[in-house]
Design a protein around this nucleic acid. Structure first.
Lengths: 355, 355
DNA sequence: TTGTACGCGTTATCAA
DNA sequence: TTGATAACGCGTACAA
């Protein structure tokens, strides 16, 4: 057998430019030949079809197992028109929030026999084009997008694809049907209420880049809490960063001019920069100044002082998104908007207002 | 045309259980029909082959473009026997080191027309099996493994695959040929020398799980520095964690019993836990105690105090690994061991010994 | 310069 | 219960 196979492979025209793999993997026909059955029978046996004789099936499976045969998902995908792959787009994996979501997605996908194509867009329109194009060519069965900072042209491209799409933390409400998101409004309102309860009256908000949905919702939650307390959110107490520590430092510097006693940061990465700027000004946290985050990233509890924040079940959100996508890919219905609760986690970065 | 196609698709037997995609994507034959040429001509035109009439090629490309045609990478992979995909295994993406490497790999892969299958192993033997199996079935052209905490059975499985493999931070020296790694020894030695230069004499080492290569190398660097200074590394000054902050807290507690004045942590995640434990004991950093990390993760400079550490060019390492894999997949040679330099970054978590 | 014919490794359909 | 045979969508000899 082996010789026959090798001979056949050697008979193929030699590689001219691109190096052709010399030793091609075993095919279903190889197994069929060894088992002295037809290749459809092998196919059936390996799929545990009841239409094949039990003993024959057993023999076939034994041969397949011992020879290390692996059915080609490529060929299967061609005929079944389902690749059992999904495309997962992130702005960048090198972001703790995204990587937690990716982790949840990947686990769930694998548990259901799906493989995940990962693609970083880096919010670069050129890359976005390539990503969507690649997913289309790969014939992915579905697409998952997380925390997209997507360009305008990206949306129509995605929608052109005839596969289900689920978003995590949709920043473009209305553009897509299915999404998983956290209770941004309630989460940030709880944070602001916590600070108000500690006696703070001049509370700043350090947001994400302007125009994104989750920032808008968190800002609204902040506003609602202040207004419920009879305060109004002064414009000079509101600034925007871009979810990165360095931009947060700059924004925090401007905010400090307005003399707040506390700041609600859009997320933990932002809090990282805010904290640094606050200390650079000689203020102690929480004695002189209170700081809060959002996400509860792994480092939040290890900061000095440990960061008061809102826990976002990132991995779980990835899992929920993937489960939703699985349903859609099976042609079933799925809840359009899945919403997870936000949990305030009080640590030591917030304290009673100084006076 | 469209009607003909729709009619054809509709003629397919209706879905019985699994929902069949109703509207199948345009195929090369569809384009050929519209352009009134044969499908090989379309294939040639789209590959910018010189063997096709310039005007015909132009027309074909225009039609393909306007119709949103995307050649199936699945079908192409079947015939060319190259999928232009790679498999990327990480212990977990939800780790800042891994996600930076992933980022570098993904970028480089995409720039070269490769798509990346991401798989988390979670150091779980069962998952490892499934990952390798999936990669084999997907017919990936190559495999990249980063910071593997791999089980024993995993190795032979990987090696069975007839595709090139490159490791980032190989923890199993000798098992694989190609890898990218950092100068662990020199990096940690520089750290220890830095502490010695600050007058420290009782310097502890808080390592990774015992038995891994990078931990062994870093420990050796630490030892070398001490011995060069006429000191010997006392056993009670050496402890092991598992690269996670909580294990580091526990290990640090034990180390403190030996009364060190400084600790060299295996990496930044470990330092996170060490710092917390040190403070819990009422020690100030760096006044009473010095702490160092390794990796220079994004949060290192934002800690209070900013962490002295060793910069590891993680993204670049991912890029180098991918470039090496690209060469191997092209059948070329590649440097077996790629080694990147380690750079000591002195910040404020280290200071002169107290006395 | 183009078209015909074939094969890639599967699954699906039919007949036996 | 099994085996021919035909797709799936592409690339590529070879012929025209």
């Amino acid at each position: 057998m082996a010789e026959e196979k090798a001979g056949k492979a050697a008979g193929i025209a030699p590689a001219q430019g691109a190096p052709r793999r010399n030793q091609r993997p075993l095919s279903i026909k190889d197994i069929a030949r060894i088992a002295r059955v037809s290749h459809p029978t092998v196919s059936r046996a390996l799929q545990n079809s009841p239409l094949v004789n039990a003993k024959t099936a057993e023999k076939i499976r034994k041969i397949a197992d011992e020879s290390g045969y692996r059915a080609s998902a490529v060929a299967r995908g061609l005929v079944t028109r389902r690749t059992r792959t999904i495309g997962l787009v992130v702005t960048t994996v090198a972001d703790p929030f995204a990587s937690e979501v990716v982790c949840g997605v990947e686990q769930t996908a694998n548990d259901h026999g799906y493989s995940v194509f990962l693609a970083d867009s880096h919010a670069d329109p050129e890359r976005e084009r390539k990503v969507v194009r690649a997913f289309a060519e790969r014939r992915v069965d579905g697409i998952l997008v997380t925390s997209s900072r997507v360009g305008a042209l990206y949306l129509p491209m995605l929608k052109e694809m005839e596969v289900p799409i689920v978003l995590v933390n949709d920043q473009h409400p209305g553009a897509f049907v299915h999404s998983v998101m956290i209770a941004n409004f309630e989460g940030m309102r709880a944070v602001a209420e916590h600070l108000l309860g500690l006696g703070h009256r001049r509370i700043a908000y350090l947001g994400d880049q302007f125009g994104y949905q989750s920032d808008a919702e968190r800002l609204a939650g902040y506003r609602a809490a202040l207004e419920a307390a009879g305060l109004s959110a002064a414009p000079e107490l509101i600034a925007h960063g871009n979810s990165k520590p360095d931009a947060a430092m700059a924004a925090m510097e401007r905010l400090l001019a307005a003399r707040p006693t506390a700041v609600c940061c859009y997320n933990d990465m932002t809090a990282l920069g805010a904290l640094r700027q606050i200390r650079a000004r000689g203020l102690r946290v929480p004695e002189d100044f209170s700081v809060t985050g959002f996400d509860d990233l792994f480092f939040a509890e290890y900061l000095q002082p440990p960061l008061t924040t809102v826990r976002q079940p990132m991995r779980r959100m990835g899992q929920l998104a993937m489960e939703s996508l699985l349903r859609l890919m099976e042609g079933e219905e799925s809840v359009p908007q899945i919403r997870v609760e936000a949990e305030l986690v009080v640590r030591a970065s917030t304290g009673r207002v100084k006076e």
